[in-house]
């Protein structure tokens, strides 16, 4: 087998707090093969966006990725890359789509010129050639009247069109890896369906590898091949889309899926996960989910949960699963 395109190993991101540095992302590992879509899922504050920013080397100060983190992208050591190397990589081989297209587009520059700028930053092509390519891209991502829209300003576009501009900018340089951070969360559901279809098409036609960051399991189901679930800075479970949605093994994944309201649950009480995610400084030393877990027992609070292979493709970190499987 060929090497994965991206390997994140023991990645930690820390922020200073009253008592030393607190790890908001704590030794997580995952990898992505060429052409694959991996979803990083979790509720707000679980560290999923920070993990992606570590890869982009864009963690806001005073946070930092710890030296023990290993990030290898396309054979290159991202942690050791120079500032110039990173600048060449970002927006070229590594692109990112953000949740809110309004805050990510420059309000005083015409949208077409923003895409031209992204192209010309990385490739030595004439303005005319870049403009032509941008209009083609706009057509490709379904922006009507692409030629006229080239010269409009962001505030004149609807949310869905702005997200299409963002996507065309992100894929303009045919990136090897596209990080999509909540790409449809700010959109209406009829527009979300269009953007999901667009991302699926781009992925199929260009073979782009996608790291999808989301809190929405329905979006995961639409796009992902594999899923990694995070809770309070830790990875709790990984598996294929099908096995994770069909047979979640970790109590947190199971609880989360049971809490989503849908037709089958009408008339039944929704599954609640008791309590709230504690703030990072108060995370338990052992399993972070201990105080909310219905299956918690003696070792959970104090010792880190073991890694359990739940299937040929799935893993979970859980004491209760270890006990059930007789280890």
């Amino acid at each position: 087998m060929s090497k994965p395109l991206l390997e994140m190993q023991n990645v930690s991101v820390t922020f200073p707090s009253g008592a030393g540095r607190v790890a908001v992302v704590d030794e997580i590992s995952f990898s992505l093969d060429e052409g694959e879509v991996l979803a990083l899922v979790g509720e707000s504050g679980c560290g999923k966006t920070m993990a992606a920013l570590a890869l982009m080397r864009l963690i806001p100060k005073p946070g930092r990725a710890e030296k023990t983190s290993r990030i290898t992208f396309d054979g290159k050591d991202v942690m050791a890359a120079s500032v110039d190397d990173m600048r060449a990589l970002r927006g070229y081989d590594l692109s990112m789509i953000f949740q809110d297209p309004m805050t990510c587009l420059n309000p005083v520059v015409r949208v077409g010129d923003q895409v031209v700028e992204a192209i010309r930053l990385h490739e030595s092509v004439s303005y005319g050639a870049a403009r032509k390519r941008t209009i083609e891209l706009f057509e490709r991502v379904g922006i009507p009247d692409a030629e006229q829209r080239f010269s409009t300003y962001p505030h004149l576009l609807s949310g869905g069109l702005k997200q299409r501009v963002m996507i065309s900018m992100a894929v303009a340089t045919k990136p090897r890896l596209l990080i999509a951070d909540e790409p449809t969360t700010a959109l209406d559901v009829t527009v979300q369906a269009q953007i999901l279809e667009l991302l699926r098409e781009l992925q199929r036609d260009l073979g782009t590898t996608i790291l999808l960051i989301t809190h929405d399991f329905a979006v995961v189901n639409e796009l992902a091949d594999r899923v990694a679930v995070m809770y309070a800075g830790k990875m709790v479970e990984k598996g294929t889309r099908y096995e994770l949605l069909k047979m979640p093994r970790h109590p947190y994944t199971e609880g989360l899926l049971g809490a989503i309201p849908h037709a089958a649950q009408r008339g039944h009480e929704l599954n609640e996960i008791e309590g709230v995610v504690p703030p990072p400084a108060l995370w338990p030393a052992g399993c972070r989910f201990t105080n909310r877990c219905p299956k918690a027992f003696e070792p959970c609070e104090g010792t880190l949960p073991p890694r359990i292979e739940t299937s040929g493709t799935g893993v979970a970190w859980c004491h209760a699963l270890a006990k059930a499987s007789g280890r």
């Binding site: 999901l196 279809e197 189901n221 639409e222 949605l245 899926l257 989503i260 849908h262």
Partner: peptide, 17 residues
């Protein structure tokens, strides 16, 4: 039709608007 589901056997919403 646009609302995606969490059922792994039902994938692929069709944009209808």
């Amino acid at each position: 039709a646009s609302a995606p589901s969490i059922d792994p056997e039902h994938r692929g919403v069709e944009p209808a608007a």
